[in-house]
Design a protein around this nucleic acid. Structure first.
Lengths: 216, 216
DNA sequence: TGGCGTAGTGCAACATGTTATACTGAAGGG
DNA sequence: CCCTTCAGTATAACATGTTGCACTACGCCA
């Protein structure tokens, strides 16, 4: 078969094939040989384009979470801290619609040795949360004594952690986000200004209910 | 070479060889072929005894954390909640003494598909914490309205999460335990009875300092 | 128009986890 | 004392991620 030279198209064909295989048979059935075959390329081509199997999965994941990222960027609430909790709802929504798919891909990426993968996940998630916390502080919703990077880092780490438990199969995505919400609320109540503490406390009430059902 | 029939000895030889290889060259250099050779057994024998490479690592890890488990069982503080925080200090101590070794093994076990591995880690850590929380509640250090399983589950999940970030190389063991301590203190202040709230608050003060140095 | 460089091909190969197969020798029961 | 059983051996093999190598055809540039 001659080279295709359809430029970017080859990238798409590979990612699309990976997507289809995973949705059809699960991430464990995604082998590089099958991927190459179904994408109609040589075994080596995905390596040329994405560097490794994990590289393909990162590209796939980045594409798949685009709607989530868009959702997260659309800051809508009248309180900035509400946007923090809205992030968790968006995640629930988007990942929940295809839970097995996302869980599989997420797990593969998260447990890979890929130099980018975990750093990107860690850094990106943490950064989004830190930015939100800083924004909340700028909007006088969080008291100035708190270090935004420190608090945001804690929240981000907790989110990532719960995502890990979800990816590992210990929690549903709903359970993971509810856990996160409860811990975030607990950590935030001590940091917010009096006029928003009511809004934050709203998210707090369900800690006990949450855990009863979601932990195995 | 004839069968050895030294019974349990073969198990020990395999685990010991794994230990030596990992300490000498790191967990990535532990291959089943090299393990078999250095243990003086056939390639298949570790599979007969431990089922899989992950099985070997689980056995190794279980042996290596025995001192930690012993430490954790030795409840010493005059307050039960202090024992919770003492767990984190013990972990710091034991894992910190051989950080690379434990990190490598932990990561391998944690990211494996082994049916036992993750469930055991998850269940065991969570259970220890839940038991402690229940004990604290029985000692009237935690108010009766709180569900011990719920609170303990949250704390355990957070610990596991931070262990994950440590194993993934995002935190040092000290950083991970300090993060955990800070979040535990935040979650506990709302649950403890007035006479111990002071003791818990002591662990709270350093949240900001902690994050500045340990997150990449 | 003709040659060149590059992207992609086809194929073989390697490392590693894992399994199958046939064999062997020791342990232990009759 | 012999025979069965079975744990462990030796060896080959498979699946899969990954890489190396020689080749080829397309598009571009002179």
């Amino acid at each position: 078969m001659p080279p295709r030279h359809e430029h970017q198209d080859i990238e798409q064909r590979i990612v699309r094939a990976a997507d289809e295989i995973i949705r059809a048979d699960g991430v464990k059935k995604l082998t590089m040989r099958r991927l190459a075959e179904e994408a109609g390329v040589a075994l080596k081509t995905p390596y040329n384009v994405f560097g490794s199997k994990t590289g393909v999965l990162i590209a796939l994941l980045n594409g798949a979470i685009a709607p989530l990222m868009e959702d997260i960027d659309r800051k809508g609430g009248h309180l900035v801290v509400d946007d923090l909790f809205a992030m968790l709802e968006s995640t629930k929504q988007i990942f929940g619609a295809d839970e097995d798919f996302f869980r599989g891909v997420f797990w593969e990426v998260m447990t890979s040795d890929h130099p980018e993968a975990r750093a990107v996940a860690h850094g990106r998630i943490t950064q989004v949360v830190i930015d939100r916390v800083a924004a909340a502080q700028a909007a006088d919703e969080i008291v100035p004594e708190v270090a935004a990077a420190a608090l945001g880092g804690q929240l981000g780490l907790n989110l990532l952690a719960n995502m890990g438990s979800w990816a590992g199969g210990h929690l549903t995505i709903d359970g993971a986000m509810d856990h996160t919400k409860a811990v975030w609320a607990s950590l935030l109540v001590g940091a917010v200004t009096p006029d928003v503490s009511g809004a934050v406390s709203n998210h707090l009430g369900t800690i006990q209910g949450v855990l009863g059902t979601s932990v195995e």
